[in-house]
Amino acid sequence: MNAITPPDPQPALPDPAVPAPGGRNPFGSGTVVLELAPSPLVRERMALALADLRGGWVFRRLAIAFAWVDIKLRYRGSVLGPFWLTLSTALMVAAMGAIYATLFHMTLRTYLPFLTLSLVLWNFLSTLVTEACTCFTVAESTIRATRLPLVVHALRVVLRNLLVLAHNVVVIVAVYIVFQIWPGRVALLVLPGLALWAVDALAVTMLLGALCARFRDIPPIVGSLMQMAFFVTPIIWKPELVGPARLWLLPFNPFYTLLEVVRGPLLGEAPSAAVWSSAVLASAALVLLGFWLFARTRARIAFWV
């Protein structure tokens, strides 16, 4: 320990090898002042939560890198790599398609495209929701080691699942080619649907992430709710099967309407106004609730994880 050299009392500032970027705190908003104090005012909390969300944009490359690393590590050393996802989805769709087309007395040509779309989209949704619950708790060591916008951890989960979804889209395309299906121009309506999904995905991840960091009983509850939703939502069964008398009930299931704004256009059907308004209402509620909860809990999450 004798090799310690005392630093100069008046530090000269040499050209730094790698300077810490100015304006890193809070999250690159162009200032290098970090001011922390409890914020009892709702308006202050909202402003800080918004600053965190903006930080997600500043650190977008980190979130993307995290998402890629997760995928790469999951399939490290395997020959097919992430295309195992594609293969397992293809097998599942083939097996379920054969069985349920017989059970529902439908031709494969009408049933299989529906089932493929439904399963791929639902898998995205249910995996996202499950992983959302742990988005902050699994990042515990990072959260406690450095100040990052919390939204980065939520973005990581959303982007990772988008990458998985992209691998599964291959199966959808393959089914469409095999059965020579072309949804037509109405398919363009999928774009607002996907935009809605993007916003909802981030909102639900922030909401569940914060909630589950505080209450560790939530993840199993969410798990069973999602399983229930799988059966009560027209995913493997076509919506028409409830019968014309009860068709009006379906838009009250937000899982159905959110699924339908993406699935409908790709099957060549424009979603009805009822479906759209239900999906938009559910999304608005989700976004408001998610933002409110995040604004309330943001400063506490580091203590909870």
Binding site: P21, V33, L34, E35
Partner: peptide, 8 residues
């Protein structure tokens, strides 16, 4: 209150 001026 904690206030830090400068890169950290």
């Amino acid at each position: 209150q904690v206030r830090i001026e400068g890169t950290i």
